[in-house]
Design a binder for these strands. Structure first.
Lengths: 90, 90
DNA sequence: GACACATTTAGAAGATTGTATAAATATCTC
DNA sequence: GAGATATTTATACAATCTTCTAAATGTGTC
């Protein structure tokens, strides 16, 4: 469980990006237009999410499409369940 | 799901404190001596964890005893399961 | 009340982060 | 290859965070 993962989750804009990606995969531009900040700032957030392996990318011509890496979320749930879950002492 | 919760989890010292508290409840001093940093710095981290409602305190004479707030961890697991879990679209 | 111990609060310094603008890279169309 | 669009990278600045030392608060003992 990497430190970059928790740091990536600490920002509300990034959590909102992740929620947008639960609905469907989206290009960087489609994501950026949902936020009032500069395009480059959203791109930076996407880079943080990608470095934490929370999202993956695929180039589609001019566009770059982002999708959730659901595997990591399973690991997050497992992290909290095993360490802090009700039956963690069992 | 409050922003302060994710920010509190973003620091490795604070996550380590939470893990120590899964073993047993501990006083501020018992927690602080596990870390190489100044006593006051650990106290600050404890304050952040308490503000995020991840821990609760109880005074015992001179000492202040910290314990995990397990309810919040259940909420965290639920947060990730409902939004990002495999069956979140069901 | 004076002193010792446990802990928090205040204030400051350095590191990290979030956001902005400008420049760079990549792809597509003509 | 020139120009248009999509996206990232570089750089800078302000805000936030982590840690420190010093001072303050709360409790117990004499």
């Amino acid at each position: 469980m990497d430190d970059s993962l928790f740091r990536a989750l600490a920002d509300p804009t990034r959590r909102r990006i992740l929620e947008l990606l639960t609905e469907k995969d989206r290009t960087a531009g489609e994501i950026a237009e949902q936020f009032p900040m500069a395009f480059a700032s959203v791109s930076h957030h996407l880079g943080v999410l990608k470095a934490a392996d929370l999202v993956a990318t695929e180039r589609e011509g001019q566009f770059i499409r982002y999708r959730l890496n659901t595997t990591v979320f399973q690991e997050i749930v497992r992290y909290f369940m095993t360490r802090f879950g009700r039956d963690s002492n069992a």
